[in-house]
Design a protein around this nucleic acid. Sequence first.
DNA 1: TTGAAAGCGCTAACAA
DNA 2: TTGTTAGCGCTTTCAA
Lengths: 337, 337
Amino acid sequence: MGVTIQEVALHAGVSVTTVSRVLNNSQQVKEKTKIKVLHIIQELGYHPNATAKSLRNKKTMTLGILVPDINVFIFSEFIKGIERAAQSQNYNVIICDADNNMVKEHEYLALLKNQTVDAFVLVFPTISDDLIKEYANEGYRMAVIGRIIDCHNIPCCVTNNVEFSKEIIMHFAKQGHTDIAFISGGQHSNDSIDRLEGYIQGLKLSQLPFQPELIEDGAFNEKKGYEAFKRIYNKNRNISAVYAANDEMAIGVYKACQELGLRIPDDIAVIGVDDNRMCKYVTPPLSSVKQPNTEMGYLVTQMFINQLNEELIKERVIIKASQIFYRDSSNKLIASY
Amino acid sequence: MGVTIQEVALHAGVSVTTVSRVLNNSQQVKEKTKIKVLHIIQELGYHPNATAKSLRNKKTMTLGILVPDINVFIFSEFIKGIERAAQSQNYNVIICDADNNMVKEHEYLALLKNQTVDAFVLVFPTISDDLIKEYANEGYRMAVIGRIIDCHNIPCCVTNNVEFSKEIIMHFAKQGHTDIAFISGGQHSNDSIDRLEGYIQGLKLSQLPFQPELIEDGAFNEKKGYEAFKRIYNKNRNISAVYAANDEMAIGVYKACQELGLRIPDDIAVIGVDDNRMCKYVTPPLSSVKQPNTEMGYLVTQMFINQLNEELIKERVIIKASQIFYRDSSNKLIASY
DNA sequence: TTGAAAGCGCTAACAA
DNA sequence: TTGTTAGCGCTTTCAA
């Protein structure tokens, strides 16, 4: 454990420089010398020390990935894409699981300061835009997934939240629904904000009135989604459709409907977002939106690494389209035409 | 970006040695000097360079985590525990997602050789025991989750597979089932092998005959589980209960039953393993076994790090108990007593 | 209580 | 085509 370049040089009867050149196949090294060195490397089982390399090159070849919670399926999908892209460019990734804790999230960024990582990919960060920009201004490199940061050297990747949300509402409208509820996912989630925007646009395009009382927050989780639906239902018993900003909350709606004796989709049509594995297995199967998470992670990371050494970035914002899967939970026609 | 210890020393009017001593609060440093240095550190926004530290200390403070597939829920649970334990001891973790590819899995171990990581936590590795031992003999440190390796300095952590499997079979037997199928998860999975062992012991203890034709392999996935059940059913139409070595395969059984017109649990009782989120949402809710994955990851990693600098290891094998959740899928009494 | 200096393993500027 | 040497930023031995 621990053959050094020195020993290789010694055994091969050349200088460490030559060995280094062979390793990085830089410059001209006589073929014969190269073969000899390679042979010794083989023989001694030499592996270049990554730390020494990092120190010398001032590059750790390591990316940090910051996620709110690695157990949430969509985040593990992003990680998969990020790791693949990193791997393909010889980068390693350090996982930073913030455990849904904003303070922890902030703390992890210290890995930039002590140069443990060259850069960070922030997956749905909860820290503020301002904080992120502050780091960017100090020269630290970050890419962001799930939010567009207005900063020239921060690559970002999001999905077409407004678009597909609009489509969902128009779909509901076409089926004859007029009182469509929206369950949001928190005030600070850009995804949720954009989906609300799509909801509003969809209503407008369908010439349906916007009714603020049909909107409640479900904080992206099942329990709060359940409660949100009950609140809405108590305010307006005419609702016949619900667009939940994610599947978890949609499942909460399922539970609420069960308790209230409402049938899905006969009484209430439901559509969620994320296309959880569960969607196909609940009864009735839940309509949802599949987002290309792994691909998003891959693309933005690939682009990011390519531009890591450049000050100015040409391509910066990636917007990926999502796919709506209509299943039985939204399969009821209301209109009598 | 990049204040060094030199600069701190310069500004504080002391030597780098003194600054280093303050940083690692080693030896005696006069209180006044210490305060002065700390103040300058604060002022300059100094952060010790982790790479230089690693090179000097010959310790990267980084653990590799090797998983078959980060998108599989249970693996992300392990990661969460491992990362937490690592974090609490100031270690970082590098994620290595083998994408269910044994070659990739092996390749990742190179991170040990080039000293990118100090050690590896192998989560349900598919590489052979021999290969792992070979690395161990070369002095590389690894901990293993999901398999017990017969090697003195490799900490391992598993669950009580045999025990709970035995219990499940005895539970079935008590309900009056006599023809109980087992769907395994591949020949090479220790989990599956142990669950089969528990199945056999359970039959014996219940004085039920062992019928080899009631065992088929479902490779831990839904589709193969579906096929396995059909094969078994075609061989023996008397089966009234199925123990699937994981939930995915149990879901496959659900699908097969639906196609075959068999009702769960009335005609076929089903129990799976892993306690997937889905279990509660399928119809009927699937009985399953919850394993303390996050805790296992945490415990073994904590122990591992504590013993990382020791040649001989006192505590080495951790066996954690699991919990069986009986739900409606296995809720039918067969016997006529 | 403090500091000078060596050295961890590597790369690259410069020289030959 | 190859080698000498300085130095990346840190810790630690030894001496003062």
